[in-house]
Simulated assay, not measured.
Amino acid sequence: MRVLVLNCGSSSVKFAVIDTKTKESIASGLVENIGVDGHTKAKGPEGKIDFNFDCPTHAEAVDQVKKFLDEQKLTDTIEAIGHRVVHGGKYIKSEKVTQDVIDYIRSIVLFAPLHEPAHATGMECAMKFFPNLKDKQVAVFDTAFHQTMPRKAFLYGIPYKFYESDAIRRYGFHGTSHRFVTAEAAAILGKKPEECCFITAHLGNGSSCSAILNGKCADTTMGFTPLDGLIMGTRSGSIDPAILFYISKKYGYDIDRLDKMVNKESGLLGLSGLSNDMRTLTQAASEGHVGAQIALETFCYKLAREIGGIAMALPRIDALVFTGGIGENSMLVRKTVMENLALLGYQIDEDRNNKAGKESGHMINKEGTPKAMVVATNEELLIALDTEDLVK
C-alpha cells in the first residue's frame, strides 16, 4: 500500500509517500515558513522542486503537497493518509480520523499549543484536497506508546486533583521512534519485542529515553510536554521550577518570556552560547571552544544519569539502543555516554563505534560487555504501517 504521511507542524508541513510493501520512500518534501514567505523543497520519481510561494495558512501548504504529487503522477497511487500527532491525550493507540478525533485534538490544544491546532487543520485540509481518501486517514500519536506506564511512573508530585481535573501527568513523546527501534532491536537479537528489555535513547534536537519492558513502555523521560527530561537542542529539559520564579522576580520575565527561554533559548544553544547543532558543537569543542565543551559534557552526563535512573524500571537490560540524528551519527556522544555508564558495565569498542555498528551487527560495545547498539529510526514508515493496518 502507498501511504501519504503528513507531519503538520506549527509553521511547516513535512510529507512522504511510503510504500509499505517495499518499505521505501517514493517521494518526500517540506513546505516551510507557513504564514511568512512559504518555501517548498521536495523530490520524487519525476524530479525535484525548490521554490518560494505565497503560503499564508496550512491550507495552501497542503494544496502545494497535492500539486507536487499530481506533477509526480503519484496522487492516484496513494491509498491512505497517515498523520503524525504530537499529543494524543487519552488515546492509547493510533486511530482512524473522524470528526470526533479532530474535535478532541482541538480540545487539548493547551497540551501542545504550537502543534495541536496544526494537526487538526492538517487533517481537515487533507480531507478537502484528497476527498477520495476522506475515510482512509489515520492519526498516529507520539504519546500513545507510552500509555502503558504504571501510575507510579506517570504521576507528578503535585496535588492529585490536577490529575483528576486536567489529566496533568507524564505522557512521553517520540513514541513512534521508540516503538520502531524496539521492534528493530528485538529482531537484531533474534527475539520478539515482548521477550526484551531495552533502554532506547532517541537523540536529536528533541531527545528522550524510554525503558522498554517486554516490548512496552515502563517509563520515559519526557513528561506532560516535550520540554521535560533530557537537555535538548534549545529546550532546557528538567530544571528546578524555582529557577523560573527567581528569574521572573529578578529580571521581570513574564510567562511568555519564560516559555521562550526554556523552549527556544536553552539546552545546547543556551549552554554553549553558540549553536543547537551537535555537529557544530563537536567541531567547535575540538577547536577549544569552552562553551561547546560545556554543552557537550553536560548533555552526555545528564543523558547517562537519566539512563541510569530509568534503568530501575527494568529487571535487566538486553541492550542500550541509540537512535535519532545524534544517536545515529555522533560517535563522540555515544562514546562519552557509555563511559559515564561504566558503573553498569558498559564499555565502548572504538572501531565498532566509529563505524556506527555497521560492520558489527549494529553493536558498538566490547565483546563480553553489556550490549549497546545503533539502530536507525524510521517514524514515517511506522506511521505508514499503522495507517495500513487500520484502513484495510
Rank of each mutant, 00 (worst) to 15 (best):
V85I: 15
D318P: 09
T143K: 14
T98M: 03
K73Q: 14
Y171F: 15
R305V: 06
V97T: 03
S266Q: 06
A187P: 03
K191E: 14
G190R: 13
K136P: 07
V101S: 00
M261S: 02
R352I: 06
L390F: 07
A218P: 09
R169F: 05
A211H: 03
G361C: 14
T200C: 11
L344A: 09
F299G: 06
K66G: 02
F224Q: 08
G206K: 03
K249D: 10
E46G: 12
G122N: 02
K161R: 15
P117K: 11
T182D: 09
D70K: 09
F111H: 09
K128A: 14
G291I: 09
G190K: 13
E95N: 08
T57Y: 04
A376R: 14
L332A: 13
L320Y: 00
D228P: 00
G89R: 14
E306W: 00
V337P: 04
G229K: 02
S207Y: 00
L314K: 07
K152S: 15
C55Y: 04
P56W: 05
H362F: 12
A186T: 07
S266N: 04
T221L: 08
E306A: 06
E339R: 04
G325P: 04
D19L: 03
I108Q: 13
P241C: 01
K21N: 05
D142C: 14
R334G: 06
V13F: 01
D318E: 10
G291E: 12
D103M: 00
G89F: 12
D318Y: 02
E95Q: 15
F68G: 07
T220E: 05
R279I: 10
R169P: 12
K66Y: 11
T143I: 15
K366C: 04
I108R: 12
T225L: 08
F322V: 03
V391I: 15
A167S: 15
E265R: 12
I49Q: 10
D54E: 13
A319L: 10
E116Y: 03
L30Q: 11
T221A: 07
R334Q: 08
A242R: 07
L74G: 03
S94D: 15
G229A: 06
S236K: 03
K136H: 13
C209N: 07
A311P: 03
M373C: 14
A295N: 11
G82F: 06
V374Q: 09
S275Q: 08
L230R: 01
R151W: 07
V374P: 08
F322Q: 05
A284Q: 14
E297V: 03
T387R: 05
V5D: 03
G327D: 02
T225M: 07
E79I: 00
F162G: 10
L303V: 05
H178F: 06
A313D: 05
Y104H: 09
K134Q: 14
A285D: 13
F162S: 12
L230K: 01
K249Q: 10
A61G: 06
R179N: 14
V65D: 02
I383M: 08
L110T: 13
R316P: 05
V85W: 06
M1Q: 01
A218D: 11
E195P: 04
S266R: 05
V3G: 01
D351F: 02
L30K: 09
D142K: 12
A118M: 11
G157P: 09
G237N: 01
V109R: 13
L203E: 01
E350R: 06
I364R: 07
Q64S: 11
G273V: 12
Y156M: 09
L268F: 06
I307E: 02
S266K: 08
A186P: 08
G345I: 06
F224H: 11
P159L: 12
V391Q: 07
